[in-house]
């Protein structure tokens, strides 16, 4: 198992280099960022030349990339055009996004699995149909629509919550954005859990457990859930990355100065250090979440062994 983990961690290195290079090339392909810095005005040639030189824009692409990577390995993620080091931007943006993701994740797990279990245990009944219709509704509405609607009705009309999150990013302010962000995934989790539960409840080991005379709580809570949650956990694992990515839309709507905001600014201003730095970290999170999911398999299903 230890070897497996190390191998997987080592596999992240080429993925890391590959993604940073790809994103670097893509931002580079957007063209020269200097002209855009001067608005509708033609840049002063002397100043533009000095800016190009200070940003190494005159060097070939590979050389720019190497200089950028050399910086990263010394802990220097470069500087945004407003003079703030990208590392500092990350320090202020990631905690907010992580907070939002965790709130959404918690809502998704508790509500999604809960609904799924209830629906799965009462298959074909009214509750089951209700959950089915509800999830269909949630899946079919795009996030930004639910976002703006909830913001307007809950935030502006009813005044139950502030429509925009304050700079403190308190947890209670994150409930509304959390619900919006979790919405679609929550529906998938509920459906996945329901199917899995409905299938496993008729399997041999459940009948055996019930025949053994185990209390129903233990049959459902340990035997049924542990086996039924394997596909759900796969989904949840990959969904952490998706949530952090999806947070970009939710963050903009609810005024959370997180990763999405910084990425948006970085792209608009064509600042490659910002974009590459933030996306790279997102990639690492995605990889790490996948690794954890794979490892969790072994915990949940003793039949799986990693050599």
């Amino acid at each position: 198992m230890g070897r497996y983990v190390i191998r997987r961690l080592l596999q992240m290195v080429p993925v890391f280099i590959g993604t940073t290079f790809l994103i670097f090339v893509m931002v580079y392909a957007l063209g020269d960022p200097v002209a855009a810095m001067f608005g509708d005005r033609t840049p002063d040639p002397a100043t533009a030349a000095q800016i190009r030189e200070s940003l190494h824009l005159n060097d070939p692409l590979w050389s720019q990339y190497l200089q950028y990577m050399a910086g990263i390995f010394q802990g220097d993620f470069g500087t945004a055009f407003n003079g703030t080091p990208v590392a500092e931007l990350m320090g202020s943006a990631f905690p907010n996004t992580v907070k939002l993701t965790l709130v959404a994740f918690a809502i998704e797990v508790v509500v999604g699995v809960g609904l799924g279990v209830v629906a799965g245990l009462r298959r074909g009944r009214f509750v089951d149909t209700g959950v089915l219709v509800f999830t269909l509704l949630v899946i079919s509405i795009p996030t930004f629509v639910t976002g703006y609607l909830l913001q307007y009705f809950v935030g502006v009309k009813l005044g139950w919550a502030a429509p925009a999150v304050s700079v403190d990013v308190r947890l209670d302010e994150l409930i509304l954005p959390g619900i919006v962000l979790a919405g679609v995934s929550l529906a998938y989790v509920a459906r996945l859990t329901r199917t899995s539960i409905a299938e496993n409840i008729r399997s041999d080991y459940i009948r055996t457990a019930t025949a053994k005379g185990l209390p129903r709580r233990r049959v459902v809570g340990v035997h049924l859930l542990r086996n039924s949650l394997i596909p759900v956990i796969t989904f949840l694992g990959t969904d952490i990355g998706a949530l952090m990515g999806g947070a970009i839309v939710t963050e903009r709507i609810f005024n959370i100065q997180g990763v999405g905001y910084q990425l948006y600014q970085g792209i608009l201003r064509q600042n490659s250090p910002t974009v590459v730095g933030f996306v790279t970290i997102l990639v690492v999170v995605f990889l790490a979440a996948n690794l954890i999911v794979d490892l969790l398999y072994a915990v949940l299903d003793p039949r799986i062994r990693y050599a």
Partner: peptide, 19 residues
């Protein structure tokens, strides 16, 4: 090992921030 991997993952994401 799972716990170890979680620590690594959290280390990659968590940073302090004043408010």
């Amino acid at each position: 090992w799972v716990a170890g991997a979680i620590v690594v993952a959290l280390g990659a994401t968590a940073c302090g921030g004043g408010s």
